[in-house]
Amino acid sequence: MKAIAAIAINVFRESVRDKVLYNLVFFAILMMGASYLIGQLTAGQDVKIIKDLGLVSVSVFGLFIAVFIGIGLVSKEVERRSIYSLLAKPIHRYQLVAGKYAGLVLTLVVNIAVMALALYAVLVYLIWGVPPILQKAWDAPALDPALLIAIFLILVELMLITAIALFFSTFSTPILSAALTFGFFVAGHFSGDLRNFEQVVDSPTAARLAGALYWVLPNLAQFDVKAQVVHGQPVPMGDVALSCAYAALYIGVLLVSAMFIFSRRDFK
């Protein structure tokens, strides 16, 4: 456990050294600029648009971090040949994979936490001076704590994507890993269509294949509650819990597979 924690902290430090946290500055500038511009561009709905923009930014910034750092977690060590010195240390290969994963998740958690705070700060600025009677007409309060549910589910989705990127990183090149991870991200949001494939094709074989793919591919659409939260619709806690359980199991599958592949890999 100690070894995993040490590796995780190193991954986090490395991401700080690689100036990954600079994206927070971009996020802050984006949110401040948007909060000013949107008021000029649109009639009403500033708060809704800022919430949408904030949540999408959290998701997109996180996605880029998860993919572009995730794909290099193992392959970069191999490329730089630093893997030899790492493996010479008293650590197991599975600990290396787990530590790398935990480190990137830690980076994501820090990023997302800061972005969430920035989003709430912008929302506080936006509601400044808005009479309570107008605020009452909004679908959801500006400082709705339910936003945290959407942000939490974005984090869970990103943890899953990180696991996908890490999995590919253990046996593939960075470019191919990135392409495959993005492919999984897109397919994961379309997986609902695979379930209803039998309604659009006549071939039972194709329908069965699509059905099988539906269960195998990650279903990422379930982590998207952004619109629900912004419109003040309730998000059942049972749904959140089941989505988290699904993600935990899927991440488990990916990490165990990554550990298995990595432990059998020959670096000679």
Binding site: L41, T42, Q45, I49, L53, A221, K226, A227, V230
Partner: peptide, 14 residues
């Protein structure tokens, strides 16, 4: 627009 429908809606609204 994948998971970003709401933001796309905002852009079309603007």
């Amino acid at each position: 627009t994948l998971a970003y429908n709401a933001l796309a809606a905002d852009l079309y609204w603007i």
